[in-house]
Structures are given as C-alpha cells and as structure tokens.
Design a protein around this nucleic acid. Structure first.
Lengths: 215, 215
DNA sequence: ACACTATTGACAGCGACTGACACTTCACAA
DNA sequence: TTGTGAAGTGTCAGTCGCTGTCAATAGTGT
C-alpha cells in the first residue's frame, strides 16, 4: 500500500529471512499469474511452490490482489518523490510532466531491486486484461491521484477543497496517463521508452482535444 | 451490465414473477447494504429476507457487487442515449456538456422506475466509501468512457485508435466528473441539482486548470 | 388435460480469507 | 552460555462468495 519509508537497514537474521520469503512469494506468484492467469492461480499453488503455509501468504499480503501490485507501488511512490523534487517555480502541468520524465529515467533501476523489469511489464499487461485486477488498479490510482492533487495544491499554496483547479488538472493529467497505459498494454512495444513517448505525445494533445471545435 | 434494450412488454405471468423477485432482491439488498454496510451484509441475509434460495440470487445477479450498480446502469445508459441524441454539428465538449444537462433533467423519472431516488443517493455514497465497490465502480466507468470515446470519434468521423483526441478529451471530461462525483458523495447536499451544478462549475475550470501558470 | 420447458431449491464443493492456539526459532540480557 | 520472551509459522476449523448438478415444481402452448 504505497510505502513511503525505506525498508530500514535490515539487521538481524530474522529480518533477512522474512525478506526472502516475501520475495519468494512475490516472484512465485507473479510467475504463476503470468503463466496461467490470475484467477486460475490459487493461493495454495503459490504457497506450495514456495513451501510455506497458506496462512503465511496472508501474513505478508493482505489479499491475493496485493501481490500483483508490488511493482506498481514502487512506481507510484517513485513518481510522487519525483514530483516533490520539482522546483517550486514550475507551473503545475510543467511539474507533472517533469516528474514524469524524471521518474521514467530512474525507474528501471529502482524497480529491478524488487522485480525484474520484464516481469513487471508482463504483470502490467495482466493487470490491464484481468477485470478484478484492473478494478483494483483503478482504485489504487484514484488514491494516488488524490495525493498528487494535494501536492500540487501545496506547491501552489492553494486549498484543495476550495479551489477546483488542482483536482481538475490532476484528473485530466491522470486520465491521459490511463489512456496511454492502456494502449501501451495492448500494443506490441512493451519497452519503458514506448510508454514514455506515447504519454508525452498524448499529453501534447490535451490542449487541442479540449478546443471547442476540432475541425 | 448496461442494458441498452428496454425490458420488453413483459407478457406472461412468468415474466412478471421474475421481475418481482428481481425487484425484491434488489431493494432488500440495497436496504441491507445501507443499514449495515456492504461487506457486513451476506448474500444469505438478502435471500432470507426475500425468502428465496441463495442460488436464486446468483441467477439474477452475477455477483454480490452487481446488485449495487443497478441504478448506475440506468444512469450510464441514460447519458449515452443523451449523447447520441445531440446534434451532429456540435463540437465534442459541447456535446458532452449538453448530454450531461439533458440526462440530468430526465434522470429522476427514469431512475425511480427501478429504485427510489433517495435510495440511489445513499447507495452512491456507499459505493464511494466502500473500497470493493469503489473499485468496481471505477472499472465500470472505464468501460463507459471507452464507449463515450467511440461515440465522440464517430461523431467527428475519426478513428479512435489513430487520433488521440477523442480518448484524451473523454479522459479529461470523465476525470472531472469523477472528482465532482466524489465531492458530491462527501458533501451534505445530496440532491441531483447539487451534483449537476458542481459538475458544471468544475467543467468551467478545465481550461484554466490546464493553463501553464495559475497565478 | 398433457406434455414441454423455464425457474427454483437443495446439496455438495471450491477457493479466498480469518481467528485461535500451539510450536519452533531467533534475540537479547543476565 | 543459557534461559526467557517474543516473533514467525503451521495447523485446524470455520465463514462467505460463488458454481455445478439434479430433481422438483410451476407456467406455457396445444
């Protein structure tokens, strides 16, 4: 659920052991999901392949869904961090686009510490094509949007609940990102560069698309 | 799941009986959801209070969620119908706003044939505040958005997959509607007029919010 | 009145998830 | 180094959403 704090130095043997089982569960789950589909994979299958009890799985992940969003968690907090790092002088949309660029560039590195990048890409496709996961994804995204809106409002010294602009801007921005994310998942080119360029291109159309007349 | 066709004249006694059990299940479920919360209500409770078997419930509704969206179904198809009815000459955003107006005005009547309006309002609040239902709501909305985008593309004689503008425009528009829907659910004034005015006001901010600088 | 078939109830079973409790294993201090 | 407390885990039993099956019942058209 979007951890903001770093996992702490991990001192004892106990900690390391925990980390290892969590990793094992995560990878086993994602591989199984990709191989057989999300709903076709039972929690028992996951835990059997890691040789822990089913109960243990639910001690690490609140539910079966959550394991599918481990990578997305990182991406989201990565973006939020990038946004916070943008210079205060920038306008809202400039900051958002800048944060997008920044987070794309350093993403692969941060991501691969937890999950191989190509595994993430295939997981993302799975999320987009599995109704239950897509629903969870959208709900999570809504939470992130709210946080982004608050950040933007803060940058501009506004009250989110009084001025509509922060939420409206973020809604438009996020809407475009949803569209490009979906298209990326459906398309052939699954590289990080592809989604980045696609998003940039679509963001450029946000102005023209809102013109009263397209002709 | 978004019925486009009218329920047909309903001839036989059999049909009427079916309709009655469906209605009974629907109302009983919504009342229980509102009274005790969605997750705190079991399907058995619903069916017991209508005196049918649990199996019957699942013959009328694919899952427990679905029953919560019966009203939303009507609203969505109502809006789509309104959009289709807008004159071809209008620009995309004008048509969307027009459709919004049109559907608000005739909504209460169409809605109350299935569910009392105040029951719907309380159900909506429940959806917004119940994570599982919110997720389902967002996924359903995403489907509606796709249909809207296709309609807009059709109006403008464009290819949805080639020109980004239809999806981008709809994404921005829908994003704003999500925001206002959420605020409406949180606010005190739960009348239809309130959400209508709020949405109109927020839509007016979509241009300014996208300006490079807000100062 | 008579077959025909749509609708239902009863029952069994699966999979996600939870609470309770006992057991193992690490951590830390005496 | 050893004893003690706590953290982590496994086992078991149980709830709830949901599905398949099959026999019983109740409208329908002749």
């Amino acid at each position: 659920m979007m951890t903001d704090e770093r996992p702490a130095p991990a001192t004892g043997l106990r900690e390391r052991k925990k980390q290892r089982t969590r990793d094992a569960l995560l990878r086993a789950a994602l591989l199984l999901f990709i191989a057989q589909g999300y709903e076709q994979t039972t929690v028992d299958e996951i835990t059997d392949s890691v040789d822990v009890s089913q109960r243990t799985f639910f001690r690490y992940f609140a539910n079966k869904e959550e394991v599918a969003f481990a990578a997305q968690d990182i991406i989201d907090s990565h973006f939020l961090a990038a946004l916070r790092a943008r210079p205060a002088g920038e306008g809202p949309l400039t900051a958002l686009r800048g944060a997008l660029r920044d987070s794309w560039s350093s993403l692969e590195e941060a991501l691969s510490e937890v999950v191989p990048v190509d595994l993430y890409v295939r997981t993302y496709r799975l999320i987009e094509s599995t109704p239950a996961l897509l629903a969870a994804h959208l709900r999570r995204s809504a939470e992130v949007e709210e946080r982004i809106a608050r950040l933007i409002a803060e940058r501009e010294g506004l009250d989110v609940d009084a001025d509509p602009r922060p939420r409206v801007a973020v809604a438009a921005f996020s809407g475009v990102m949803r569209v490009t994310g979906r298209l990326w998942g459906q398309g052939d080119d699954s590289g990080i560069a592809a989604i980045r360029d696609l998003t940039e291109a679509y963001l450029d159309h946000i102005g023209p698309a809102l013109a009263p007349d397209w002709r």
